[in-house]
Computed example of a mutant assay.
Amino acid sequence: MPSETSASVQARRLAFGQRLREVREELGMKQSDVAAAAGIDRTTYGRIEAGKHAVSIDNVFKVADALRVDVAYLFTGLRDH
């Protein structure tokens, strides 16, 4: 059984992934577009959006740049779980 911390971390990954998807779709971009612009494998990017990949801060910056938004915008509306 996962610990409470693990459940909390997983919930945050899911919320962040959903936020990435929202922003990407608002911009009319495909996962492959964002991944290519960020220099990240498309499968890895898909796993980030699905909340199944622990994304590094470096990749958060790359994704923000690819989406042409401020990093803080990617965290807008996320709740602390």
Rank of each mutant, 00 (worst) to 15 (best):
M1R: 08
M1V: 14
M1H: 12
M1D: 14
P2F: 01
S3A: 13
S3C: 09
E4M: 04
E4K: 07
T5L: 14
T5V: 10
T5N: 05
S6P: 00
S8T: 08
V9C: 00
Q10P: 00
Q10L: 13
Q10M: 09
A11F: 00
R12M: 14
R12Q: 13
R12I: 03
R13G: 01
R13I: 02
R13P: 00
R13A: 12
L14S: 07
L14A: 12
L14W: 02
A15Y: 01
F16W: 05
F16T: 03
Q18K: 09
Q18R: 09
Q18T: 06
R19P: 00
L20S: 06
L20T: 07
R21P: 06
R21L: 15
R21F: 11
R21N: 08
E22D: 15
V23G: 05
V23D: 01
E25Y: 02
E26Q: 15
E26K: 12
L27H: 11
L27S: 10
L27F: 12
G28I: 06
M29Y: 09
M29S: 01
M29A: 07
Q31V: 03
Q31W: 03
Q31S: 11
D33I: 07
D33Q: 12
V34W: 09
A35H: 11
A35C: 13
A35G: 09
A35S: 14
A35D: 10
A36M: 08
A36L: 11
A37N: 10
A37P: 04
A37K: 14
A38E: 10
A38N: 10
G39S: 09
G39C: 11
G39Q: 08
G39R: 08
I40S: 06
I40Q: 03
I40M: 13
I40A: 04
D41F: 00
R42S: 08
R42H: 04
R42V: 12
R42M: 02
T43I: 08
T43V: 14
T43W: 06
T43P: 00
T44S: 13
T44A: 13
Y45C: 11
Y45M: 10
G46D: 05
R47P: 02
R47N: 15
R47L: 15
R47C: 11
R47E: 15
R47K: 15
I48M: 09
I48D: 09
I48C: 08
A50E: 06
H53E: 08
H53C: 00
H53F: 12
A54M: 09
A54R: 11
V55D: 03
S56E: 10
I57R: 03
D58R: 06
D58M: 09
N59V: 05
N59Y: 10
F61G: 00
V63A: 01
V63I: 15
A66L: 01
R68E: 15
R68Q: 14
V69F: 11
D70N: 12
D70V: 02
D70T: 02
D70P: 04
A72S: 14
A72W: 08
A72K: 10
L74Q: 04
F75D: 02
F75S: 01
F75V: 03
L78K: 02
R79I: 01
D80H: 05
H81L: 07
H81Y: 09
